[in-house]
Design a protein around this nucleic acid. Structure first.
Lengths: 157, 157
DNA sequence: GTGGGTGCAAAGTGTTTGCAAGTGT
DNA sequence: ACACTTGCAAACACTTTGCACCCAC
């Protein structure tokens, strides 16, 4: 579904590097291609592992140094779900205001958007005298219905 | 305002310990009294510092070992605002569904509650086939209006 | 008395950084 | 060539844990 969007994102990021006079190295290319060839959320460690399949010379340091560039470019979103590592979301540019429900049983993460929610958030913030820069709604839940349908995989990842 | 609620919370926690056959030591007493004598959010390190004023024998290890008990008891809420340390909120029992706006400029945290928000969240979750266990809305914002009123303290802490 | 609790310091974990060598432009 | 990048390993910041001693019950 998102093949075109993904290669567009890759393109955008390479432009972003150019504009900042940053170099397009083989390692960065491998990382960027990895990021924008998946729809999945990932951790820094996963990104390292996957990127190394494309270019085994990619180091942990380079991954950690590239992630801030990706988030700064606005194409990837950094999230915190209360685990001790951060989770990155490559779908950010397409859906900048999506929220997440996490199943506490199987760690499944489902994204959703809601205009009503956004409107309400802006309203509340304005009443409190703030200007919203970003919002993040995190709902921890159990997907009981999914379990009944056999879709909740307790084994986690 | 919350003096009665706070000593009630302390009481509840001591009961919680009893029920689990855990001991009420001087160190735990110092930590608990510290927690429930403030309205402020705090970090583990701050809790250590404050607790040591009551009992200098409190160690970092004991603080870190007591915090999970406090959250397990439901009287304190653990939160993650994307910093590299966790923030604890002793107001949880009184207002279990409050949300937070963080001013990115001065790190000020403002709590708020909204019934409409809760209703909306539950509705969305149900539609997606989840049963909500907890929700956490975090809004990052800038308190420009507050600055105009002189209430935004850029110096942070 | 005994099983849980404590302080200490060492170990862990995810992430950042100093440095010398390498490389895109 | 020059400045930006890299890999490595050491450094970091926060949190957890092994151990021998201690103490609430």
């Amino acid at each position: 579904m998102a093949d075109l969007e993904r290669s567009a994102a890759k393109e955008k990021f390479l432009n972003f590097l150019e504009q900042k006079n940053l170099r397009i190295t083989n390692q960065r290319r491998a990382i960027v291609e990895t990021v924008f060839s998946t729809d999945q959320h990932f951790t820094a460690e996963q990104l390292l592992e996957w990127s190394r399949k494309r270019d085994s010379s990619v180091s942990r340091a380079t991954v950690y140094r590239t992630l801030p560039l990706l988030t700064e470019s606005g194409l990837v979103h950094e999230m915190d779900f209360g685990k001790d590592y951060k989770i990155y979301d490559p779908n950010y540019a397409d859906h900048p205001n999506h929220n997440h429900i996490i199943c506490d049983d199987c760690d499944k993460i489902v994204e959703f958007e809601s205009e009503r929610l956004e409107t309400l958030e802006n309203e509340i913030s304005q009443n409190l005298g703030f200007t919203v820069k970003s919002q993040q709604l995190r709902i921890n839940a159990s997907c009981e219905d999914m379990k009944k349908l056999g879709a909740c995989n307790k084994k986690g990842h």
